[in-house]
């Protein structure tokens, strides 16, 4: 190797090392949204006293919580809404009461699902996905068009609990987000 090509290689080495000093942190910096683990822990909330819920009519409740958006912390933000349907009437004891909860986030593309009173079914206004009162997708034949949703409404863990102090029976829901577009319900990671 002559002097000239040795110098060339030293030049290339200096340039490469310098570039790497910038490039390595640059890649980590740019990809930080991937590196940072976003937690999707279930948010447990008591939403309503059991006695306040009408039988068979879905009721909508907001889920409040802290939301972190990059550098801003929002306290008490609406993180999502849930639909609660009380199945059993007041003759059933609270311990036996049947209550179901669904997230209002549509499993198709994430719009907010509404209760369509006129037709007694759930309707997502964005792409007209329709679900019956049990959260199951309506059949294409009944709709006259293809129901865009890949699966039924996402059910949330839901139970009836008694408040230790007031002895009131409350409906408690575990709110979570799920992946869109899949045929099965999978927690968002």
């Amino acid at each position: 190797m002559n002097r000239r090509s040795l110098l060339r290689w030293i030049c290339r080495a200096i340039a490469s090392v310098s570039a790497a000093v910038v490039a390595v942190p640059a890649v980590r910096f740019l990809l930080h949204p991937l590196l940072r683990r976003q937690k999707n822990d279930a948010i447990v909330r008591r939403l309503a006293p059991l006695d306040d819920l009408p039988v068979g009519k879905p009721q909508s409740f907001p889920i409040l919580g802290t939301r972190q958006d990059a550098w801003t912390t929002y306290e008490e933000e609406v993180l999502g809404r849930v639909w609660i349907v009380r199945r059993s009437n007041s003759e059933t004891s609270p311990e036996q009461a049947q209550v179901e909860a669904f997230t209002a986030i549509c499993p198709h593309l994430g719009c907010a699902i509404d209760w369509d009173k006129a037709h007694d079914h759930f309707l997502c206004p964005c792409h007209r996905a329709v679900f019956d009162s049990n959260g199951q997708p309506a059949a294409d034949a009944d709709l006259g068009y293809k129901n865009p949703t890949p699966r039924g409404m996402d059910a949330l863990e839901c139970r009836v609990v008694q408040d230790a102090e007031t002895e009131t029976w409350w409906v408690e829901v575990e709110f979570q987000r799920f992946e869109f577009g899949l045929t099965t319900q999978q927690a968002l990671t």
């Binding site: 910038v22 910096f29 930080h32």
Partner: peptide
Amino acid sequence: TTAWASVHYIEQLPGGAFIRGL
């Protein structure tokens, strides 16, 4: 309302403090 907050956020990100230092 966001300038300081976003710079402070950069400082906490992987490689952020070094890049800002450079």
